[in-house]
């Protein structure tokens, strides 16, 4: 069962215009964890030769997913914002496949939340990209 807080987080995240523009869908939201989907779209192509989507779209998916993981953390109150985020692109995302992102807020202090995330396509064994970042935590 989704908690009241997580229902609010989901509603908030689903109302974000840029996430809507990218067609980002909520898959699951837990306690400091989040999962999201982004379907393949020709408009997101970054390399016309191969049809691989641009790193920027993957970055936006991972940033959204990390933000949702922070908001869903039991100790987080209020909104959040990204302080920094680093994405490592391990391999090109396979064209036509849906990307899945999973983020975990693994530590939270009074001012900072630490998050890591992974983006996968249909191949579960080899990540497309990983992310690590720091986010602002709301003052209680």
């Amino acid at each position: 069962m989704e908690s009241d807080k997580n229902r609010l987080v989901r509603q908030f995240m689903e109302a974000i215009p840029h996430a809507q523009a990218l067609g980002i869908l909520f898959e699951n939201i837990g306690s400091g964890t989040a999962e999201m989907l982004m379907q393949y779209d020709k408009r997101f192509i970054g390399d016309p030769k191969t049809g691989v989507i641009h790193g920027g779209a993957v970055f936006a998916l991972l940033d959204s997913c990390c933000g949702a993981a922070v908001l869903s953390h039991p100790e987080q109150k209020g909104l959040t914002a990204t302080i920094d985020l680093r994405v490592d692109y391990m391999r090109p995302a396979s064209p036509l496949q849906t990307l899945r992102a999973r983020a975990q807020c693994y530590n939270i202090t009074r001012s900072v939340a630490f998050v890591s995330a992974v983006a996968l396509d249909d191949n579960d064994d080899k990540p497309v990209a990983t992310a690590t970042g720091a986010f602002v935590t709301g003052k209680s």
Binding site: A15, I16, A19, F59, A60, D63, S64, A81, T82, V87
Partner: peptide, 15 residues
């Protein structure tokens, strides 16, 4: 990315 403020999405800035 934040309709309340409003502010640009961090992912859009990164992209």
């Amino acid at each position: 990315g934040n309709p309340g403020l409003p502010a640009l999405h961090g992912g859009a800035i990164a992209a």
